[in-house]
Design a protein around this nucleic acid. Structure first.
Lengths: 119, 119
DNA sequence: CTGTATCCATTTGGATACTG
DNA sequence: CAGTATCCAAATGGATACAG
């Protein structure tokens, strides 16, 4: 996630970066399918550290895109789901992901052509 | 741009990251309007270093999303424009950007509510 | 199980100087 | 003008250990 947030950045660009961040996109797409527990998301996304997933989910929750439901049981159980706002964002992200899937072959051809003309 | 590309990453996730990268999104949206010269893009995007803009444009060109037209004149003149493939991607990115614009107020309310319940 | 804290490697990205 | 090269600071992000 481009989570720098340091300083003077246009606020809407910030939302955009949360939504389009590496783990943000994958979390939103996974949650579009159904709610997930923390560990389910980790498995489904694959190769994401606990730290980054927690950080990503907190940011998305703060932006009002993800709802966090922590149940006071032992062992702890936390379910994540999309809010209405989050669903709108997730659908667009999923569409973009589907586009890259559809056009992947064309991109790979372009890369080969590009590389062929260079050292 | 999450331009790491280091290693074993699913190739379609890679395309996605180029398209959704910080400078990638802004370049695509600017080019959707009309072709731009390098320095025009720099001004329009704002606060992007020459290095990052050049890197971003090269990546998008390699992926077949951006067309680079370098004219052999002095002083050098290079025009960047979208390919058909790039236009498809750019339109989706622009839609997502418009969404964040429309929903910015809702996100900011969510943030305030979130922050209000915390130290 | 769901996190947080710490440490550390890698990556990003800006500033500057320079070239064709 | 349109970059490339270099250097360096800052941010990202993984591994590990630990806590509630």
């Amino acid at each position: 996630m481009a989570m720098a947030e340091s300083e003077a950045m246009c606020p809407e660009r910030l939302v955009m970066e949360h939504v389009t961040s590496r783990w943000g996109t994958l979390a939103l797409i996974a949650l579009l399918d159904r709610p997930h527990r923390f560990s389910e998301l980790r498995r489904e996304i694959g190769r994401v550290s606990e730290k980054m997933l927690a950080q990503t989910l907190r940011t998305l929750e703060r932006d009002g895109l993800v709802h966090r439901d922590a149940r006071p049981v032992i062992p702890p159980r936390v379910d994540y789901s999309l809010t209405d706002l989050g669903r709108e964002a997730a659908e667009q992200v999923r569409d973009l992901a589907r586009w890259t899937e559809r056009r992947l072959a064309a991109v790979e051809r372009a890369r080969e052509a590009y590389d062929a003309t260079r050292p």
